[in-house]
Amino acid sequence: MSHNKYSLPFKLTIVTEYMMNKKTKGIQAKLANKYGISKNSVGNWIKKYQETVNTKASNLNKAYNEHLFPSNQDSLLIENTILKSIIVEKEIELNQLRNRKRFKNMKF
């Protein structure tokens, strides 16, 4: 059994396509076939992405709600982190919009 290591950008491309089309029946299998990878890999990457996003959001909310900011500098660091995460989300949304038309035109 061989073990392939895929790059993070490759994995995020697949997760992004999944997020754009997650209501499509059989989307994980379609993406696996499109990219020549296993359906299990696609499912694992989606799960890992969702767990990572949920954990980061939960940790930031917990820190904010419990007022764990002993100094103004710490508050600014947390705010900076939150704003960076928003930028990443917006970049993903922009990428989704750019790829939507291309993905819709694909034949499965």
Rank of each mutant, 00 (worst) to 15 (best):
T52V: 07
Y49V: 14
G43P: 07
K104H: 03
E79Y: 09
E91Y: 14
W45E: 13
T16L: 15
L94N: 13
G43K: 01
L8D: 03
F103R: 14
N44F: 07
T55P: 00
Q50C: 14
Q96I: 01
K22C: 05
T24L: 13
K39R: 07
I82H: 05
L83V: 12
Q73W: 11
N72V: 11
K101V: 08
N59W: 14
Q73V: 15
E51M: 06
I37K: 02
N99E: 13
N105K: 11
I92T: 12
N44L: 09
V42N: 01
A32R: 01
E91I: 07
D74I: 13
G36K: 10
K39W: 01
Q96H: 10
I82T: 10
I14Y: 05
K30F: 02
K48Y: 07
N40R: 15
S7R: 04
L8Q: 00
R98C: 03
L76I: 13
Q50L: 04
S41W: 07
S2L: 09
E17D: 11
K5W: 08
E79G: 08
W45G: 05
T52Y: 15
Y64T: 04
A63Q: 05
V42W: 12
L94T: 07
F10C: 14
I46F: 00
T24E: 13
F103E: 11
K39C: 09
T55Y: 09
G43A: 10
K107G: 09
K23M: 13
